[in-house]
């Protein structure tokens, strides 16, 4: 492992195990995912709703609450040349790792702040739990400095969450994630439910934080436009698996998987007034996956093998991996 790597996953599997009327139902939300994420990059993960993006993030963050269960694999962080297997840490070690080394911007910032305390109190709770020996005033001073550096209005600290707009709350959530200068920030749909003007501000803030901390941001969003804007490398997820991974430019200019091509082709382009085609059909239920490649029922280019066997994610170019029989057949 070169020392440019911050996070590696080995065949992680996270399933939702549900008990439906006595019979067990297994939803394979994340199935055999291998990722290698580098320092100082924005890594994007795209895919339709319900393809396992958020579950993947939760797994990487070791946030498993029933019915979500970790079924196998490894999530390793590299911190100062030290390997940390987050899923085998004790509760207290994991608590300390969070926010100091990895931070999270959850989906839907509308209701993530305690409604009965001012935001400076929320700041204080985060700082208090990770820094020791600071007085109340010192902590509020750190919070003020931090807000000022990011160019947010200082008065948000004195506000209650309900007094701020959705965009401002999202910005505070992003600012808070960078508070302790973590090496990795997970951003789960940070722009959802915001209008495009506010989205721009939010994306810019993420970018600013990444540039000043030189850390890694793992950005999940279904919005390909945002990936095009800020992701350095990206992965496309489909039915709990990574089906294509490459540099963002490569994904947009040379998509190899038919699903990726559908995603790219559905984006509006300047000057082009043609009708945009989307992938036909709906994503499969993760509880009842089709045999073979999970995309084959919707794939216009499917062959026999697609319905029988699951394609592996293989190298299909420099820095480009694809899981599709159309591409990997040539190697056989």
């Amino acid at each position: 492992m070169d020392n440019n790597t911050v996070l590696v996953t080995e065949n992680i599997k996270s399933y939702y195990v549900l008990d439906v009327g006595g019979s067990k139902k297994v939803v394979k939300a994340v199935d055999d995912v291998n990722l290698t994420i580098r320092k100082n990059e924005i890594y994007g993960i795209a895919g339709e709703s319900g393809c396992g993006k958020t579950t993947l993030m939760k797994t990487l963050y070791a946030l498993m609450n029933p019915p979500l269960r970790f079924m196998g694999g490894k999530v390793i962080y590299y911190r100062d040349d030290q390997e940390i297997d987050i899923l085998s840490l004790s509760k207290e070690e994991r608590r300390k790792l969070r926010w100091e080394y990895i931070a999270y911007i959850p989906q839907g910032a509308m209701s993530i702040f305690n409604p009965v305390i001012k935001l400076k109190e929320t700041y204080r709770d985060f700082l208090d739990s990770h820094l020791s020996g600071k007085t109340r005033d010192e902590i509020f001073e750190i919070a003020r400095e931090h807000i000022k550096e990011l160019g947010l209005p200082i008065k948000v600290l004195e506000a209650y969450p309900h007094q701020l707009s959705g965009g401002m709350r999202q910005r505070v959530a992003i600012a808070l994630a960078g508070l302790l200068k973590p090496a990795v920030i997970f951003a789960d749909e940070p722009t959802t439910a915001l209008d495009v003007v506010v989205q721009r501000g939010v994306v810019q803030l993420l970018k600013d934080i990444q540039e000043s901390l030189k850390n890694t941001i793992i950005l999940v969003t279904h919005d390909m436009g945002i990936h095009a804007n800020i992701s350095d490398r990206m992965a496309i997820m489909y039915a709990g698996k990574i089906i294509e991974e490459a540099e963002t430019k490569e994904i947009f200019y040379n998509p190899l998987h038919p699903y990726t091509r559908f995603l790219i082709n559905s984006l509006p382009k300047f000057g082009d007034k043609g009708v945009r085609a989307s992938a036909p059909g709906n994503p499969p239920s993760l509880a009842n996956l089709p045999t073979g490649c999970p995309f084959h029922p919707r794939c216009p280019e499917k062959t026999d093998i697609c319905t029988r066997e699951v394609p592996e994610l293989v190298q299909t170019g420099e820095e480009h991996k694809t899981a599709c029989w159309l591409v990997s057949k040539g190697d056989e």
Partner: peptide, 20 residues
């Protein structure tokens, strides 16, 4: 509630999450 989960994500101390 989301804000409780967020406090857990942030590694805020358990006692604080419980009471505050």
């Amino acid at each position: 509630e989301d804000f409780v989960q967020y406090a857990q994500l942030g590694g805020i101390k358990e006692r604080k999450i419980m009471f505050k």
